[in-house]
């Protein structure tokens, strides 16, 4: 049961808006967390046998399932020596009263694009290793993300689940034999991973920051920003994803906080998927 996600109209509840800020000034949050504390994360991989890679991630009450199907196809003509991946996301209506059935709306498309950017711009997948015959046949990874339960901040767990599914994905091997593409039975390879991107959602209320907002907090925020980081703490994507002002003076603090939290989330991910770095 949640008050905020069920309300058809999402204008903030005044007493909560004031209260969330008052608590932040005392270093507290309505659910008892510290301002810079993420909710508990749990990651299980290879949960869908029919997918080539899959991961179920929960972050507090938010639950995300990602599955990857690998197909073969023609590369883009401007990138003949690279494999292809696409990211899709759906906000399933069973996840929240505020999600509606139907084709992905702008929120779902934004989620997919943020996850895509984190993976693409960090160059997490070595796409050149996903080529079967240059310019002709490459592996194509379809990364499909489903939000199953929405209790705030679906961005960070979505990136975690996509990367966990990628890291544990078994790509079925294909070979060209006499000009014909054939499946090499029983053989598969790991996704060539170069870095482990994670994202961190940071909310801003006046002069205070918080991470991993709850739905009630999301409604009270002045604005929020999602930052993607690679394993070397480079920033690989940014999305200011709500209206409102983001003070230039706060950016330094935001980047530092994000980088610290990214490391924390990455270590949880690395442990769950058994990736030594």
């Amino acid at each position: 049961m949640s008050l905020s996600t069920k309300s058809p109209k999402t204008s903030p509840i005044k007493i909560m808006q004031n209260r969330i800020y008052e608590l932040l000034k005392q270093g507290k949050r309505i659910d008892g967390r510290a301002p810079h504390e993420v909710r508990p994360v749990s990651i299980s991989t290879s949960v869908i046998e029919k997918a080539d890679g899959s991961a179920m991630v929960s972050m507090g009450g938010t639950k995300i399932l990602t599955g990857i199907k690998v197909e073969t196809g023609t590369p883009y003509s401007d990138r003949p020596n690279e494999g292809v991946f696409t990211v899709n996301a759906e906000l399933l209506p069973l996840a929240s009263a505020s999600f509606e059935p139907g084709p992905p709306d702008e929120r779902a498309v934004e989620l997919a694009r943020i996850v895509d950017r984190c993976i693409r711009e960090s160059r997490a997948i070595d796409l050149e290793k996903l080529v079967i015959t240059e310019g002709e046949k490459v592996y194509m990874l379809y990364i499909d993300i489903y939000v199953l339960d929405y209790d705030g901040n679906y961005f960070d767990p979505a990136v975690l689940s996509a990367v966990a599914a990628l890291a544990t994905c078994k790509i079925p091997r294909y070979e060209m034999r006499n000009g014909k593409l054939e499946r090499v039975e029983g053989e598969s390879m790991k996704t060539p991973i170069r870095t482990i991107p994670v994202s961190v959602m940071i909310g801003v209320i006046q002069d205070r920051l918080l991470v991993d907002p709850s739905p009630m907090e999301e409604r009270a925020l002045d604005t929020s920003v999602i930052l993607g980081y690679d394993s070397d703490s480079n920033i690989v994507s940014i999305q200011k994803n709500t209206p409102g002002l983001l003070s230039l003076n706060m950016m330094e603090q935001i980047i530092e906080l994000g980088s610290k939290k990214a490391e924390e989330l990455r270590s949880i991910l690395v442990e769950a998927v058994g990736l030594g770095s």
């Binding site: 869908i48 599955g67 759906e90 059935p101 499909d144």
Partner: peptide, 16 residues
């Protein structure tokens, strides 16, 4: 609404 995830079946199901 009965709906299947794209990866729930052998051949990836298109969205929608």
């Amino acid at each position: 609404r009965y709906h299947m995830a794209s990866f729930s079946v052998d051949e990836r199901k298109p969205l929608g």
